[in-house]
Nucleic acid binder design. Structure first.
Length: 327
DNA sequence: GCCACCGGTGGC
DNA sequence: GCCACCGGTGGC
């Protein structure tokens, strides 16, 4: 069954590329350094431009294409940086970031012009952007670039019931068949992520925005919905509040058409892991402090001793926060 | 003050 | 471990 995958290339050399693959489609994403982000601003008018695929592409079409029967096909003999396999259940949607498009095979696609970063200007951090969308053919498993976000969203919305095929590209006059080389290789030069299938298209006038976070963040990405008035909403409760306060925009807009699901990076080390909450991990801190640190002396028994409620009557659910406060 | 970006919590 | 949600923050 066609599903979606979204992959991002490794970030060893920055900037790198991102690809999102959905229902047989591949979306390209460009990580933004301060430099290329500025370039993005200068080229705002080019947002969502259709990628160009050179006819003499080096792609062989089959070497690196994941196969439905084997999740190990991302590995190649000559590419040690190939991303790890992704689940068979999610193979159709991919995101990648083409900001460092050394292959010249794909033109950057921006789902929305991005403003120059105002915060967190650590030059070492690269905030990637979705530069293109890609979907995998359910028949030949080759990746096909999707011209723009809207087409990608249409495919993603019905990917399970209507698997993407190479022939689907005829809808935008590409006339690609399963005999043609793949549009994009999963060669480790981009960051790939698996997108979620069957996400409803945003209601008319609304825009679904995917903002990738830099490597090492606690989350891979954030989803926002831009309302018809330009308000950015970042959760279902916020959307509900907006619809309640803007009845003129709530007509025929069902809340279940909003999804804040984010793609999953193929590289599981892209996102910083949440620290283990195993008490053993905290133990050194408990007895490393000054002897006269009363807080530390109190914190230790809270971490390990006693029933669900500590001696202060604090519920178990609150205990961890209390422990951190002590530390 | 705004807002893009990030971290963290709590529920599951 | 994943995810939904939301508070914090610092550049503008």
């Amino acid at each position: 069954m066609s599903r979606g995958t979204l992959r991002f290339a490794p970030m060893q050399s920055r900037p790198t590329k991102f690809t999102i693959k959905m229902g047989g489609k591949v979306h390209e994403i460009t990580p933004c350094t301060n430099h290329n982000r500025q370039k993005t601003i200068e080229n705002d008018q080019n947002a969502l431009e259709v990628p160009t695929i050179p006819s003499n592409s080096d792609n062989k079409g089959t070497d690196h294409i994941p196969n439905a029967s084997s999740s190990s096909e991302y590995s190649t003999e000559d590419d040690e940086n190939a991303p790890p396999p992704y689940p068979d259940s999610q193979k159709q949607m991919v995101l990648y970031d083409p900001s460092s498009n050394h292959s010249n095979a794909i033109t950057s696609i921006q789902n929305k012009p991005r403003s120059f970063p105002k915060k967190h200007l650590d030059p070492k951090r690269v905030v990637p952007e979705v530069g293109a969308f890609t979907v995998q053919c359910a028949n030949c498993f080759k990746w096909r670039l999707i011209p723009d976000q809207e087409k990608y969203e249409v495919i993603r919305e019905h990917i399970t019931d209507h698997p993407f095929l190479c022939a689907t590209t005829r809808q935008w006059d590409r006339h690609v068949s399963c005999d043609d080389p793949t549009d994009i290789e999963q060669d480790g030069s981009r960051i790939w992520a698996i997108d979620k299938p069957n996400i409803a298209k945003p209601p008319p006038g609304w825009k679904r925005l995917l903002r990738l976070r830099s490597e090492g963040s606690s989350k891979f990405a954030d989803v926002y919905y831009a309302s018809p008035t330009g308000t950015k909403l970042r959760s279902t409760p916020e959307v509900e509040k907006y619809l309640a306060s803007h009845p003129e925009h709530a007509q025929g807009v069902a809340i279940n058409r909003f999804s804040f699901q984010i793609p999953k990076p193929l590289r599981d080390d892209y996102v910083k892991k949440r620290p283990s909450q195993n008490p053993e991990r905290v133990q050194p801190i408990a007895w490393a402090g000054p002897v006269d640190n009363l807080n530390l002396q109190i914190a230790e028994p809270l971490a390990w001793a006693g029933p669900a409620e500590n001696r202060n009557g604090m519920p178990e659910a609150k205990k961890r926060k209390y422990d951190f406060d002590c530390l």
